[in-house]
């Protein structure tokens, strides 16, 4: 629909953005390249290609320090949390945005409170609560925590659902559909772009979170990848060649997820489906 030919302004934009993106390419590219350097090479050659190509860092990280286990933990925890988060928060947002009732406005602000204070200050009472339900050192506890931390995604969903034309809902009612069916079978499919946006952003946040796993997944066998990397980093001068390898490993799944999801964002919406 937009014209294919690109004017001068377009080309300038392309060039500027290319230069901007070059920063990320250089830094991330350097990280990946450096993960194949030996420690001594790295010391004098922080930027640039390795003198000799070594996979020793990966052997150490993946096999000797068994980071593959942390990797599996991370994947499981993140995927399960995202699904639970998107389901619960979109449902709550739907209830908030599509129905008229007393106290709705205040409830919206109430659900935003979660973004306004550092979780660290609440960690002690949270710990007590988690223990009361025997949820410490369990993935299910973590999934519930990440789901409860829904302010961001709920906010995005609420604003989105508000914009949807009410005609959709009304016509479905006339067709005799139940409230939950309308949400699941009519609203969710239209919400694809926003669902995938929330998924992408939440994926990164949960994947990169080390604080909650540090507190609630004390057992070594339950550690996530980010937690493992964080512990390398806490003593990073001793391990900085491993840091590069571990960080590269951590990056791969997120890039894959982003590529899949962002294509969904772009192609997710059939033209005209929410016309008034």
């Amino acid at each position: 629909m937009y014209k294919k030919k690109q004017g001068l302004g377009g080309w300038i934009a392309t060039i500027l953005l290319t230069l901007y993106c070059l920063i990320a390419v250089i830094l991330i590219g350097n990280m990946i390249i450096s993960s194949f350097k030996t420690k001594h090479d790295l010391l004098f050659n922080t930027f640039g290609f390795p003198k000799e190509f070594s996979i020793e860092n990966y052997q150490q990280v993946l096999i000797k320090d068994s980071l593959y286990r942390n990797f599996i933990n991370s994947i499981f925890l993140t995927v399960a949390s995202i699904l639970s988060l998107v389901f619960v928060s979109s449902m709550t947002a739907y209830g908030l945005a599509r129905y008229r009732f007393k106290g709705r406005q205040s409830l919206e602000v109430y659900f935003l409170l979660g973004l306004m204070f550092p979780i660290q200050i609440a960690i002690l009472p949270l710990f007590v609560i988690m223990r009361t339900f025997s949820l410490t050192n369990t993935f299910i506890g973590m999934i519930m925590l990440y789901t409860a931390n829904m302010s961001f995604s709920l906010f995005i969903f609420t604003q989105f659902f508000k914009e949807l034309p009410s005609a959709l809902h009304e016509s479905a009612i006339i067709d005799g559909a139940g409230e939950f069916t309308i949400y699941l079978q009519i609203m969710m499919p239209i919400s694809k772009p926003v669902i995938f946006t929330v998924m992408t952003v939440s994926f990164v946040q949960i994947w990169n979170d080390f604080y909650l796993p540090l507190v609630f997944l004390a057992k070594r066998s339950l550690h996530t990848l980010t937690l493992a990397i964080y512990q390398y980093l806490a003593n990073f001068l001793a391990y900085w060649n491993y840091v590069f390898a571990a960080a590269t490993l951590a990056l791969i799944p997120v890039i894959i997820v982003f590529l899949i999801f962002s294509d969904q964002i772009i192609s997710g919406l059939a033209a005209g489906s929410i016309k008034e």
């Binding site: 449902m91 409830l107 979660g114 609440a122 949270l126 829904m150 302010s151 409230e179 939950f180």
Partner: peptide, 18 residues
């Protein structure tokens, strides 16, 4: 029905500690 599950989870794990 839509709000309750989220409300309970959120209140228990976020607001009570706050």
């Amino acid at each position: 029905g839509f709000i309750t599950p989220g409300f309970i989870l959120y209140s228990l794990f976020m607001i009570v500690p706050l």
